[in-house]
Every structure is written in C-alpha cells, then in structure tokens.
Amino acid sequence: MIPVPVPVILSFCAAIFFIGLAGVLIRRNILVVIMSIELMLNAVNLTLVTFSAALDHPHGQMAVFFIIVVAAVESAVGLGLVIALFRTMRTVDTDQIQLLKG
C-alpha cells in the first residue's frame, strides 16, 4: 500500500480546518457553530497524527488524546450552554443573540 504523501494529508487537514473556520464565522445556528469548532479541532488532530507518523514520534499522538478529551468536554459544556441559552432566549440564532456589547 502506497502511503498517502504527507503534503496531501496536510492540505486536506488545512481544507477541513478552514471549512470549520468558515462555519464558525458564517453560520447563524449555534449548534452548527459548535459542530464547526469540532471540525477545526479534528483537523488539528489529524495534522498532529500525520506529523507523528511522518516523524515517528509519539508526542503528536499524545496531544491528540488530550484534544479528544477536551473536545468532548467542550461539546458537553457547549451543548449545555446552548440549551440554557435556548431556554432564556427561545432561539439559537446568533443574529438574535447580540448581548456582548456595552
């Protein structure tokens, strides 16, 4: 099996990362925004794993485990927040939730 070349994988990761980033910036549904954040995190994970394999070094994979844990926690907290937000605001549309201003 011919291994996929590293630059290809990295380009793929970058593409996923920026898709996620675009989702965070553009989408109006908070749930989708959180999903996009997951996408960005996993793009980073994939990058780390790629480097870990290419450089034959375990640190990258260790970092990935931490990130997976943190991402799980983040999703849990984030979803909790979204539910609390929905209860008070009756919406999950970011255009309707513009409270961070003086």
């Binding site: 980033l21 965070v24 553009i26 970011t94 513009q98 409270l99 961070l100």
Partner: peptide, 14 residues
Amino acid sequence: LQNGSTQLYAFLML
C-alpha cells in the same frame, strides 16, 4: 465595531 455579534469578534480576532 462592538455591535454584540460574537461572530464579528471572532472574525476580527482571526
């Protein structure tokens, strides 16, 4: 600039 839209803030950070 500070219109309350979190996504604008995120964009500016970016």
